[in-house]
Design a protein around this nucleic acid. Sequence first.
RNA 1: GCGGGCGUAGCUCAGUUGGUUAGAGCGCCAGGUUGUGGUCUUGGAUGUCGUCGGUUCGAAUCCGAUCGCUCGCCCCA
Length: 417
Amino acid sequence: MAALQPVRGTHDLLPDEARRHRHVEERAFAITSLYGFGEIVTPIFEFTDVFARTLGDTSDIVTKEMYTFTDKGGDSLTLRPEGTAGVCRAFISGGLAQHLPLKLFYRGPMFRHERPQKGRLRQFHQVGVELLGVEKPDADVEVIAMARHLLDDLGIGSHTTLEMNTLGDVESREAYRKELVAYLSDHLGGLSEDSRNRLAKNPLRILDSKDDGDRKIVANAPLLSQHLNEASRDFFAKVQEGLNALDVPFSVNERLVRGLDYYGHTAFEFTTTALGSQGTVLAGGRYDTLISTMGGPQTPGIGWAAGVERLSMLSAELGQQMEPPPRPVALLPMGEAAQRHALKLSGQLRRLGIAVEMGYSGNLGKRMKRADKARASTAVILGDDELAKGVATVRDLDSGSQEEVALEALVSRLRGK
RNA sequence: GCGGGCGUAGCUCAGUUGGUUAGAGCGCCAGGUUGUGGUCUUGGAUGUCGUCGGUUCGAAUCCGAUCGCUCGCCCCA
């Protein structure tokens, strides 16, 4: 037990859990397909710069959570902590600008070196989307509605709520930032240590602080919404109108600030109370400056990412039933001639799309037991007696009734089941 | 990175104020039924009591360290 342990914060997915996990990914893929998204697969590691430059020098991800290592060639590489930076890098290196607008879906493992908790692992999985090349608020509406659609599809829609905010465009944000810093500087003494550190680097984050002292100060702080220029205000209004038109409920949370530097305009977050303190289930926002910052052509983007483990836990806890895998037919050959015959039969049946479970060894009783455990619907007993008569015994495992069926008729008989 | 709780069989857990051979249920294996499962019944196996060290005549039990899990903080999916 102590000898061989998985690396801290990593987790094996055994078949039952893996199935649920896969279900989430497949539904996400299916739903996003309905909106015209196609899958992109990017490497799980990139040059460290890809993340360090884009996520922001002050983000927690960059300062303390990255899995960074030096490879044999001396390059600094990092296991991807999130998906957007890699997708944008692929967009630039692949010269995809000529295919805009681009709707991309991705899924796969992400890595963050932090203290594991319920719904938080060091290797975890996300599904996410990026819509590139559309600067109009229609894109925001579509992408957010799609997120709602997915959560509903997974049966957790009623347990999640959508909060949104706008961070405005660069001009609005800079103007606000100045005023916020001025206000907070006047109240420096009351701020927590964390927040004092954030003041110079990323003051907007202080709005989101959970520290009581900070909250009191923040309560009277100037609001971003009052510093939005007309374009930013108009943009946010259009997003809200669109969501209303689609009957996607939301509330505006002025203190919602995303953790990564590249966001502007729309920021949103679907949260739940059913997962302890890890309440965020799906989150995203607009990033119109990211690609150009990375050295690509000025290209607007909006996207979101969702934690597969969190979605999977939620759908499990809320009792959404998984479709069980198909029930197999169990073949129970007794004797060598029967074994050969059953082997052939298993091949035929499987090629017809019928699941087959073949007992590897043991007497009939043991094989029956295994057939039962495999949830087989039917057991086909093939012994020397039967073979000599040119028949097989077909037993219905639910009713317990059985009959002899001619070998020639066996395949069509089992197919009919 | 910081704080609290917890590590006993494959799983869920019990184990009295330290006292001899460490228990239950479930699961697993075998018999009852040498070719008939799911029910029933009888029996059986399985533990470096997370690890290392300390206190003690004696430690699963007390102390320390360490590893892991877990909950919360920070932050996030």
